[in-house]
Structures are given as C-alpha cells and as structure tokens.
Amino acid sequence: MSEPVLRLTDVSRVHGTGAAEVHALRGVSLAAYAGELVAIMGPSGSGKSSLLTIAGGLDSPTSGSVEVAGQDLDEAGISGRAKLRRTSVGYVFQDFNLIPALTAAENVALPLELDGAGRRAAQKAARAALDEVGLDGFADRFPDEMSGGQRQRIAIARAIVGDRRLILADEPTGALDTETGEDILRLIRARCDAGAAGVLVTHEPRYASWADRVIYVRDGLVVDEAGETPDAALAEEVEA
C-alpha cells in the first residue's frame, strides 16, 4: 500500500520542566493515508490538540518523529515547516482564525500569496476554493460581515486552496450549531474523498462518525481505534 500522508512515530511532548512537567503526549504513533479521514477523540486535556499542533509543525515533539508527505518535520527546520504549511497542510481552527483586515478571498489566497504566487493567480485559486465551499459571491466581503458558519467555510477554503494533501481540523465545529457543523464536516469529508488525508480532532461523536477511523486518546496515549484502515475499507467496497 502507499505511503501515509501523515505519520507520527512514537511522538512525545512534555511541557515545562521539573515539578511543573506535564506530559501532553506519551509515545503516540499514528498514520493518515490519502483519501481517509481520521478522527481523534478524547476529553479535554487528553492531548488531542497537542497531537494536531505537532502534526501541523506548529509545535515540535520532545521525542519521536513526524513525517508529512514523506518529509521529516524536524529535518525540514522552521522555514521548511512554514513552507509545508503554505503548500501541503491546511489547518482549520475552532475559532476560524481569519484575518479581519482581509477579505474572504484574500484570506483564502493567503497561503498562496505567502508562497509567492502572483496576486491574480492566487485570487483565481481563492475564488475557486470559495466556490467549492459554497461561498461564491462572498469573495469580497470581510469576515466581520459574515456568520460563523460562513467564516468557517472561508477557513476551510483556505485550508484546501491549492493542492493540499493534508487537512488538519481542530474542533472545527466547536463554535457552530449542529446543522452548520454537519455542513462543515461534509466539506472536509468531500475533500478527503477527493484524495486528501484528513485528521479531525473533536470530542463530539456525531462529527467523529464522519471519519473512516476514530482514534481514542486518553492522557496522551492512543487507547483504541474504531473503523477500518483504508485497505480493509477498500476491500469491502470491492466486494460490495
């Protein structure tokens, strides 16, 4: 089978030292393959968000290795990780993290522009991404003028713009009502069905059930996994 898009190998993360030492992750390994959506579930404080920040290169593990699209994040260095976030990894946050001074299209075009794309090309790609999340016609609005669901759609558009292979979503539905949350998950799922790998951190079973696999995290450890790896799922589909 193919290489996973994201692979965490025995990742640990310790915050602080001495008495204030806190183990956020204790030797977690997991992989996400192209075309699958993996949900990570756990109560707050279980380490699921740490897992995601490390997967996105926003934080570095204390030990263990992280590979995104075949590249080791530690070897990539700060600028290499930034480059990965611009080109390969899309991050979706609970509170959207849109830049209020920029329009919807500009927010979406941000990774492309930061990567040095021409303004025109970036805008075109951004508008296409906005179309994809159903926000055609809102390109020139500012985030302040839009509803929470619309803002999260912009964030998703920003996470999928260009050819992203990995989407990391950290409680993307946290600030939204059930229906809007379902819409957001549908968009992420669609992206995964189109070939991206997705990792979704949530504490809501309803949204986790969109995933192909659900990984349970407790106290910085993976305790269980529900669902089949892509191979099994594929085999089933072939049989059916």
């Binding site: 926003l58 480059k83 990965l84 990894v89 830049i99 209020p100 941000l110 930061l114 990567d115």
Partner: peptide, 11 residues
Amino acid sequence: DLATLSAVGAR
C-alpha cells in the same frame, strides 16, 4: 493575526 499568518505558513 500574526499567529494566524504563521499557522498558514508565513515565513
């Protein structure tokens, strides 16, 4: 906003 820029891969 600067944190956001960083998260989407600013140099």
